[in-house]
Design a protein around this nucleic acid. Sequence first.
DNA 1: ATGGTCGGTGTCCGA
Length: 262
Amino acid sequence: MRVATWNINSVRLRIQLVKDLLLKNKIDVLCLQETKVMNHLFPHDELSDIFFHQHVIGMKSYNGVAILSKIPFVSTGSIDWCNRSDARHASALFNNGIELHNFYVPAGGDEPDPAINDKFAHKLQFIREMAEWGKRNNDNDAKKILLGDLNIAPLENDVWSHKQLLKVVSHTPIEIEYLEKLKLSQNWVDAVRHFIPSTEKLYSWWSYRARDWKKSNRGRRLDHIWVTPALTKHLSSASVLSEVRGWHKPSDHVPVILNIKI
DNA sequence: ATGGTCGGTGTCCGA
């Protein structure tokens, strides 16, 4: 079972990039974030040859997530976080027993102080609610996947400069602490770092603002795939498709793929 | 130290 997560930054604008990804990579479950489209305008038909099963949670202009699958759903869902219906979560239980949660965590704005920046306060509250949800639903034997754009790069080698990003939203100690609490809530395992050691720089996002993203290489690893301990022994490989950042009219995020023997 | 670029409900706001 090959599972991928990709912040697509408008699925309608980049539908051809999604098709190109699928031509080059065998993917069974593709999870998208920032689809930026209402459900009735989602390009279902463009992908229905490959993904017969589609669970889409969208809104106008902002956010939006989707789970596109070759594997049938037993059930699907979506949770509202922070009392907002803002299309940041979609879940699916597959007929192979795996439960998947696709998240688009708030970016958090520029100022890393919840007292003066409502967006940062929202981000922290969102992660806190995820951790509470994790604790409520903890089941050591369950086969679960949590993935998506978590908008936090937790490790020193998840950013181009640990020191220079300590006060930059996405790599501040408070966010990393909250993310760690979320991780502990269900003993989640970072499936990508399971294969790519933390001593190695690894990014899934490069800003549009760089003159040359590849040359400056000031990236961050904001996109993650986590699994519960029951799934860890089934993992076979993980990859980050950094070359996708160099495609024509790219998203600022690239796909992250996990291969599971199931 | 600053400003740089995307996308969409487009001459602003969120990322």
